[in-house]
Design a protein around this nucleic acid. Structure first.
Lengths: 190, 190
DNA sequence: CGCGGGTTTGATGATGCTCAAGCCCGGTGG
DNA sequence: CCACCGGGCTTGAGCATCATCAAACCCGCG
């Protein structure tokens, strides 16, 4: 049931059988259909979501009305709007199911109690956040040192299966260029 | 002595007088002169650094031999290479003093004991990491939706004092363009 | 006082955007 | 089962943004 999450957690901390039960008691599950929204602009983010199956994306709509995909979360990644979650202010983002998804949900109002009982789970989330931050800095690195085309080739080489899973317009905006440009890159590939 | 750090910590968690003493017992201080390196390529990062006074930058050298500034840390920001720190693998980065700096140092080998004694300090670092991650995603957002010139104007408006403190070539690479281009933007301003 | 790192300025050209038109294909209703 | 949407993808022309290279300049520091 929660086996993927538990094995992910075991990579960073160790919990006894009973502790795992306590943890599981603080979790719940949800599913969403493709294109459904988990979080919408103006709402206050109340949970962290662990992707058990499927794919989520975090995006925002800019002044010109076009969608900017900021982040994807596939299996075994956490997704939330950390800013809204932490400050309890309305979010500027949308979180949407790219495919049908099965999520493990940790509600904010259960977090304090969970961390009280299991401080090592807070360590797990500290490490997850630090790694996500490190990955994000690497991404900025790639954005600045590689051209759009290089970025696409690098990304599709390191995630060959993933580039097939998402619509081109989402991938293009995630990589920082237009769908038209991605189309031209792919055409050249021949 | 550690007053800036302590008041920063108090924004997120509360510690008793004695707990603050325990915390301080796990910290140390270091100063570096402008242009000195705190961390260099190939080393393994062994500490987190809190900037008490001055300015640090995290940068890397890309294949063409030019420096890419990835991040700055000014007063009351933490700086480390989270990836090297966490995995204990050699870093790809450099951390350098942009100005003379006074740092508060938390050594990795004192961290486990500290978090054992004061779990709420681990909460503080979780929140710091989550906020840093959120800020990093916002930065990616700006990189993609604003042009280079817009990015500079936005940044210098939100950090008017800071843009004066760092050499232009560092700021340019932080913002994702060349020093020549920054020079031209500034010339236009008249 | 001269050296050298950093900045300025200008010419040229690549990268990737915008806009517009056409196409492809999967889903929906008749 | 077919017709017809309509969203997403493709293709092309023209253009804005910004990089590259080179030369001159400025100024703080030894």
């Amino acid at each position: 049931m929660y086996s993927h999450l538990l094995s992910h957690i075991r990579r960073y901390i160790s919990l006894s059988e009973e502790e795992e039960q306590i943890l599981v008691g603080h979790l719940s599950q949800k599913t969403f259909r493709k294109k459904e929204h988990i979080l919408e602009f103006g709402q206050i983010c109340q949970a962290k979501y662990f992707v058990d199956k499927g794919c989520l994306r975090l995006y925002m709509v800019n002044e010109t009305g076009s969608e900017q995909t900021i982040h994807f979360a596939i299996e075994h990644w956490w997704m939330t709007d950390y800013f809204s979650f932490e400050t309890q202010k309305p979010t500027h983002f949308y979180i949407q199911a790219v495919e049908d998804v099965e999520l493990v949900v940790l509600e904010r109002n259960k977090m304090a109690d969970l961390f009280e009982k299991l401080p090592s789970v807070e360590r797990y989330f500290r490490i997850v956040a630090e790694r996500a931050y490190a990955a994000s800095l690497m991404r900025i690195q790639y954005i600045f040192t590689l051209s759009g085309e290089e970025r696409y080739r690098f990304f599709s080489q390191s995630q060959p299966d993933f580039v097939q899973r998402v619509p081109q317009y989402m991938l293009a905006s995630y990589l920082g260029f237009t769908p038209e440009f991605l189309s031209k890159i792919r055409a050249k590939k021949i």
